Simulated assay, not measured.
Amino acid sequence: MNGPFYPFEGKLPKVDERAWVAPTAAVIGDVEIGEKSNIWYHCVLRGDSNFIRIGARTNIQDGTIIHVNSGSFPTVIGDDVTVGHAAIIHACTLANRAFVGMGATVLDGAVIEEGGVLAAGSVLPPGKRVGSLELWMGNPAKLVRVLTVEQRANFDTTAPHYVELSGRHRASLRSTS
């Protein structure tokens, strides 16, 4: 296995060949990354005391930390999810098309349902649930409003953009090695 992948107690990360992981990321232990997902520079995904699962076409942006809770909560991230720069995703569930803004934190047992949005810098407390199309913000995060389908559609442009951009990064890195 090439890249920044590390075993933990005999478990190696499983990364789809069409996914892209930046060379400065660290992916450790029981982690699976789906097709065309992309893990950016200086991210840490540590599946040591539980597992991390990431679906297809999901982008985990620069400096994000993803971890688990021993025995209680793994971290499960669906398809077409965006996790902004320098977020902390800890032992929670991000359903398909969830959107987590830059610098936000999602804590143990929390859930962001399909199409839910957590604003930049917000902290979603343990066990809280962001509903479909809901926008939450603050510390602690609270419901601000329900987005219209049209408003939510603007967020859906991010995942395909990052799939395309990761391909360009992969090509650029290959051309310099």
Rank of each mutant, 00 (worst) to 15 (best):
L124Y: 01
N96S: 08
H169W: 04
G167I: 01
N50D: 10
D30L: 05
T157Q: 14
L107H: 03
L94W: 06
D48Y: 09
I52E: 12
S177V: 14
F51C: 04
L173I: 13
R18N: 12
S72Y: 15
P160K: 13
A25D: 00
M137E: 15
G167N: 03
K11S: 14
S172D: 08
V149A: 09
G121K: 12
G121E: 07
A119F: 00
Y162D: 09
L133R: 14
N38S: 05
P125Y: 10
I39T: 02
V81T: 03
L118T: 00
D30P: 01
M102V: 09
D80M: 14
R145S: 02
A95I: 09
G47S: 09
S72E: 15
A56R: 13
C92P: 01
V44N: 02
R97K: 13
A159D: 13
L94F: 09
T148D: 08
K14S: 15
F8N: 01
N154V: 07
V117M: 05
V21C: 02
I77V: 13
E17M: 08
G101F: 11
F155Y: 11
I88R: 07
M137D: 12
M137N: 15
R129F: 04
E164W: 04
P160L: 10
S37K: 00
T158Q: 14
A19K: 12
A171V: 05
A98Y: 04
G167A: 01
A104Y: 04
G131L: 09
A171I: 07
H42G: 09
P7L: 11
G47W: 10
L94T: 06
K14I: 13
S122R: 00
H90I: 02
E17T: 13
I88M: 11
A159L: 10
A98F: 12
E17F: 08
S177A: 15
A26K: 05
M102I: 12
M1E: 07
H85W: 02
S177N: 15
E35S: 08
A19F: 06
D30F: 02
L107Y: 05
E32T: 12
R170I: 03
M102E: 07
E150K: 11
L173C: 02
T82I: 12
N50V: 11
V15L: 03
A171Q: 11
V163R: 04
R170Q: 08
K11C: 10
G103W: 05
D79C: 12
L135Y: 07
I65Y: 10
E17I: 10
A119N: 15
